[in-house]
Deep mutational scan, measured.
Amino acid sequence: HNGKLCKLKGIAPLQLGKCNITGWLLGNPECDSLLPARSWSYIVETPNSENGACYPGDLIDYEELREQLSSVSSLERFEIFPKESSWPNHTFNGVTVSCSHRGKSSFYRNLLWLTKKGDSYPKLTNSYVNNKGKEVLVLWGVHHPSSSDEQQSLYSNGNAYVSVASSNYNRRFTPEIAARPKVRDQHGRMNYYWTLLEPGDTIIFEATGNLIAPWYAFALSRGFESGIITSNASMHECNTKCQTPQGAINSNLPFQNIHPVTIGECPKYVRSTKLRMVTGLRNIPSIQYRGLFGAIAGFIEGGWTGMIDGWYGYHHQNEQGSGYAADQKSTQNAINGITNKVNSVIEKMNTQFTAVGKEFNNLEKRMENLNKKVDDGFLDIWTYNAELLVLLENERTLDFHDLNVKNLYEKVKSQLKNNAKEIGNGCFEFYHKCDNECMESVRNGTYDYPKYSEESKLNREKIDGVKLESMGVYQILAIYSTVASSLVLLVSLGAISFWMCSNGSLQCRICI
Rank of each mutant, 00 (worst) to 15 (best):
A233H: 06
S234Q: 10
K241V: 10
Q246Y: 14
I249E: 01
N250L: 11
P254N: 06
Q256W: 01
N257C: 09
I258V: 15
P260R: 14
P260A: 15
V261R: 09
T262V: 13
I263P: 05
G264N: 04
C266W: 11
P267L: 00
P267I: 00
P267Q: 02
R271Q: 09
R276C: 11
G280N: 03
S286V: 12
Y289P: 05
L292V: 15
L292N: 01
L292P: 05
I300A: 04
I300H: 03
G306H: 03
D309M: 05
S330A: 15
Q332V: 04
I338F: 05
T339H: 13
I346M: 12
M349N: 12
M349Y: 08
N350D: 05
Q352D: 08
F353W: 12
V356M: 08
E359C: 09
F360M: 07
E364M: 10
R366D: 08
K372I: 06
K372R: 15
D375C: 06
D376V: 04
L379I: 14
V390E: 08
V390D: 05
L391R: 04
L391C: 06
N394Y: 06
L398Q: 06
D399L: 01
D402C: 02
V405D: 05
N407A: 14
N407F: 00
L408Y: 05
E410I: 07
Q415G: 07
I423M: 14
C427A: 02
C427N: 05
E429W: 10
F430G: 09
C438K: 07
E440N: 09
G445K: 11
S456T: 15
K457S: 13
K457M: 13
N459S: 13
R460G: 02
E461G: 12
I463D: 00
L468Q: 15
G472A: 07
S481H: 06
S481Y: 06
S486C: 07
L489E: 09
L490C: 05
S492E: 00
L493C: 04
G494K: 02
A495K: 00
S497Y: 00
S497W: 07
W499H: 04
S502L: 08
N503G: 04
S505P: 00
I512V: 14
